[in-house]
Write a protein that binds this DNA or RNA. Structure first.
Lengths: 178, 178
DNA sequence: AAATGAATGTAGCACTCGCTACAAGGGCTT
DNA sequence: AAGCCCTTGTAGCGAGTGCTACATTCATTT
């Protein structure tokens, strides 16, 4: 078995472990155990921990975008409010929680200037703003500004959920819709 | 010198170190060095690391609220847009960056259900929403909903800054104001 | 003066961390 | 069959972790 196929067998299990436990305190030995191998092998195939995490995040990001499009097939919404409701409903769904938790891990390190994660987080947000723009009504007068506005709202709501204040997120959604 | 005054001498230096390096990977020996003492003494006076961090966060929270009221003295804004502009300007200010970084540390652990930090984060957000409500124009028809809406917007913008996408935050602000 | 108790330095324990040296297995070519 | 290289297991290194046992200093109390 060559190196590439070995990695691709490990990837789903590695990703599941990272999604459950985060990447901040991630250590090789339990991670390897979760994939049915040893830290020795992970280092051998990925080079070092940093590269392993980079590959892992790339894999998870791809997995996430697929899940998103499956859950919410592309196509414009009927209004800005409808678009916000759909996107917020998806991003705040409990099924998204592992991704959200990982997202805050990445964000915390990006905020401290950890360059690899800063690039990752910027790329993820850039992808999201484009995704929301593509879902706006086709006749929206300011798709760019509106997409930014909606993303900021959605991510703010996700933060409120994580902070244990979902009522604040609900109230914000109601204030925008009403 | 009794234990209380010993702690209060350490506190500013401990807080400065925590604000600079975060609390996620915080270890006692460098922290003690920053305060001019030893890990041995920190444990002796605080009991254990968990209690030390709890005390530290309480100290920093008090410090932050004082800084906020100094920077933006209380009193209602002239409009919702003015309120958002003022609050966002304050929270996105580079001077707030250490606090923001620490905030994302807390949030990441709260999102994973670490109960101490979950309570802390909920309390901080509850304080903020009340603070914003007190700054809204006195005749606002829906102070509660509007305060929630503005907090979600501001925190979303702070997140975009941390994620390396300040343009998205700016665009969202413009979209709300315009 | 003797005794008590709080405060602090020194040294270390038991553990985990990322990573590596070494050797052995196993399939390949020559 | 001989040599070779990719892969893997075993064991361990050096550093760092929170925390503690022990001994000592020093001020206060009796």
């Amino acid at each position: 078995m060559d190196s590439a196929s070995q990695k691709s067998e490990w990837m789903p299990k590695l990703a599941a472990h990272a999604l459950e436990h985060g990447i901040t305190g991630l250590s090789l030995r339990p991670l390897a155990r979760a994939a049915g191998t040893s830290d020795r092998m992970l280092i051998y195939h990925f080079g070092n921990k940093e590269q392993l995490i980079a590959d892992l995040l790339a894999f998870i990001a791809a997995d996430l975008t697929q899940n998103l499009t499956t859950a919410l097939p592309p196509g414009p919404s009927t209004s800005r409010v409808a678009c916000l409701t759909e996107v917020a409903g998806l991003m705040r769904n409990p099924a998204m929680r592992p991704y959200t938790q990982l997202w805050f891990d990445i964000l915390a390190e990006a905020a401290r200037g950890q360059s690899a994660h800063a690039q990752t987080s910027a790329a993820i947000m850039a992808g999201f703003v484009g995704w929301i723009r593509s879902r706006l009504p086709a006749d929206d007068p300011d798709p760019e500004g509106c997409a930014a506005h909606l993303l900021v709202l959605v991510e703010g709501m996700v933060m409120m959920d994580a902070a244990g204040q979902p009522e604040v997120a609900d109230a914000a959604l109601a204030a925008y819709s009403g």
